[in-house]
Amino acid sequence: MNPDKPNPNKLITLEQLLQRGDIWRGQSQGFAPQAALDSGHAELNECLLHKGWPLASLVEICQPAALNGTNMVSQGEWLLLAPALRQLKEGYTVLLNPPALPFAPGLIQAGIDLDRLLVVAAEKKADFLASFTELARADICTALMAWQPKHNLSYTELRKCQLACSEGKGLYLLFRPLSVRQQSSPATLRLRAQLHLRSLEIQVFKQKGSLNSANTSIHLALPETWLPIAAHANLGQEQSPPSTHSTNNVSSIKRAKRKVP
């Protein structure tokens, strides 16, 4: 067949291709998801299109692995997401393959409604993918927080997740280790989250419909109780760090001493 004269039946014009909603066209915001959920962090909202977490699309959060050798990643997820989750008044928040057991007292303090929080354990990649797509398509799952299993997800697998998300209406978050940042991913929004001593740094490095967000990074304030106090830090260096005495002076929490009668 002459390459200059392609079969007219199979001819696909650029125009036709551009009609597709899932082709990212740089800065054009026409095809980027419209619905958004207020993230609860004013600075972060500024960085995001439509001023909030995009709904019905895959949001990927890359975090440095907190536990070496394991897949455990945990860099202030609840700090980042609790304000948004608290706004969801119906449906379930599902944790898929979470890195550890969600601790009820801590979550109650964070204002999460435990009656609408489900935990699903799926360690194998095949189970994880099947559960992810099932959950993303379910109407009652309004927020899904999923932690990538030990084996890295390929582009096709991520694409399956993204497609399932586009069929749902909720907030879909996938946590992955920082090492995959260089891989390409079909996610609508990709972030890097990194805890520092005084702040949680969020860097948006991909966002459909916006090109120049690559270098914006914002710092979210940590709760006061997490902050080291300078004097205390100094004390820690001078004396033995795990000394009860040194920490007692600056303790911001009450010493709760209880005995069972």
């Binding site: 997490w226 920490t247 600056v250 929490i253 709760a256 005995k259 069972v260």
Partner: peptide
């Protein structure tokens, strides 16, 4: 691990707040 007056768990730990003493189950 607590060695040479340093507490570590996959990296050095620095104590921030505490202690909260919990006793029970006697």
């Amino acid at each position: 691990q607590y060695r040479q007056q340093t507490l570590s768990w996959r990296g050095t730990l620095q104590l921030l707040t505490g202690p909260e003493r919990i006793e029970g189950y006697w």
